[in-house]
Amino acid sequence: MNSVTPLLWRKALRNVPLVGATIFAALIAGAGAALAQEAGLGAPFDWQMGFQEPASPVMRDIIDFHNFMLWLITIIVIFVLGLMLYIMFRFNAKSNPVPSKNTHNTLLEVIWTVVPIIILVVMAVPSFRLLYQNDVVPTPTSVADLYGVDVSGEITLKATGLQWAWEYEYVDNGVFLFSSCLYGPDYWCFGGEAPEGAHRLLETDNPVVVPVNTLVKVQVTAAAVIHAWAVPAFGVKIDAVPGRLNETWFVAERIGTYYGQCSELCGQYHSYMPIQVNVVSQEDYDAWMAGQLAAMQPDRLKAPTTEFAQQGITPRRALAIAPDLAN
């Protein structure tokens, strides 16, 4: 044993490049394996390697364009890797003891300047189209024209980033929601116990509810510091900046629950301000909205607790923050 181990070591040491290259190749191969995974809907799943399942036409376009880009960059990387491996075997000192002195080749230099330019131009065309379609807030009709999605109406949702929660206003009917990462007796989700099967750090106490196949315009701002409102499955992410009202949009095509997280460092509890959007049928949405409105009867709005009043919080908002207290 004592004699064998140092021998192995010495052997390994002699073949450092070989051993190293083998380990590295094995790693790359392992990482590349099992790319074909079933995507989850609305939330990430264990060992996920790609995008979440798309739930909006924009996200479908993003995934299509990214797949195109992924092919492109994979080919480029493999091309460079291939050239380097060929060079290592063909032009090492043993195979090629006398180096050439070739330092110029105008044609070659023109080619490797022009070909990348062509590739970039080819790439830029769909990229610009994606950008303009994604970024410019459409009307229900233009969504139908652009994506062939049958869109019924539109609603406007205002999201305000707070440290560390989201406040939502359904601008069309004045309903407020205060949506935080709230479980158990402690205020923050890391304090209490999440229910069985819950998506820890993703679920909120008051999810946003929107109807399916409806143009949802999202106006985003923040109270004190910058946050970002993001839902990966919709392909939506926009900064919430104090003093600005940024606007984005989505059309959710599938009923379900979708999660996102604050995507701009906003201080200590940045990790704990998730976004949960429940996409429901139009009837369910109408029923939910009626319930929200009913809960906001004027007599219930008249009696804010002194605590809220001292903080300058309006009755309607107090109700949103803590319905039981306000009542």
Partner: peptide, 17 residues
């Protein structure tokens, strides 16, 4: 090459941050 991917601002809503 991942930088080239990120350059595409149409993808940014998926990639940013």
């Amino acid at each position: 090459v991942t930088g080239v991917v990120l350059a595409n601002s149409g993808l940014t809503t998926a990639f940013h941050d």
